[in-house]
Amino acid sequence: MLLQVRQLTKSFDDKTILRGVDLDLAEGQLKVIMGPSGCGKSTLLRCLNRLIEPSSGQVIFRGKDVLQPGTDVRALRQQIGFVFQQFALYRHLSALHNVTLALRKLRGMSVREAHAKAMHELGRMNMAEHADQYPAQLSGGQKQRVAIARALAMDPAVLFFDEPTSALDPLMSREVVSVIKQLQLDNVTMLCVTHDPFLAKSIADRVMFLDEGVVRAEGTVAEIFGAHADPRIRDFFAHEHSAA
């Protein structure tokens, strides 16, 4: 198992966001975490690479509890690619330099090596011809593909997606879905937070449903999206379906 989370909790002052979350992610698996807004999905993702410090619990990554004191947090983060809802590209850098920055400054690659690696990843995302363009010159879907190339360039053990399609129109969402599907074929391990049923149905191996910081259910797409026994889950999908 690549990632095991046990009894993870997170509280901000007097508000508890995550309440004893358990999660397993195997190599090559794509798990989708769904749930209503404010249920703690994004917080969970950020607790796993310690962008947010969990209050208690265990995060076992490659057999080691990374919440233990003495963990090299920066080294941990370099093994986890993170793709954000709002793309989060460095706007003062071209697409190419967005990808090469970490390769040069964190991996110590030469300009030539970093350039070659970045162009390979941009090519994989069909973005090679836009390498010299700045984020402001790219569409939302193109920005997200550059963001994915930036994450992939570091050869991460797992890719985290935080609502990767919610800032995109349906056409651009489909672009991103097809990219994620391609990564799935390449056996990339992924954990994706979304409340977009279309995205979840299109890509998920397994779906975990989080509600008020608690895992209410986990199963295959058919199990979660079917007539689930839990009325909260049924209500959520009925609402999402009508909203769509």
Partner: peptide
């Protein structure tokens, strides 16, 4: 954009690197 700073931290940059590079 605060998300760019978060992205830099998520990539594994140190506080000083985030400041200097982003």
């Amino acid at each position: 954009d605060a998300s760019e700073l978060e992205a830099a931290r998520a990539q594994g940059f140190s506080t000083l690197q985030v400041f200097r590079l982003v």
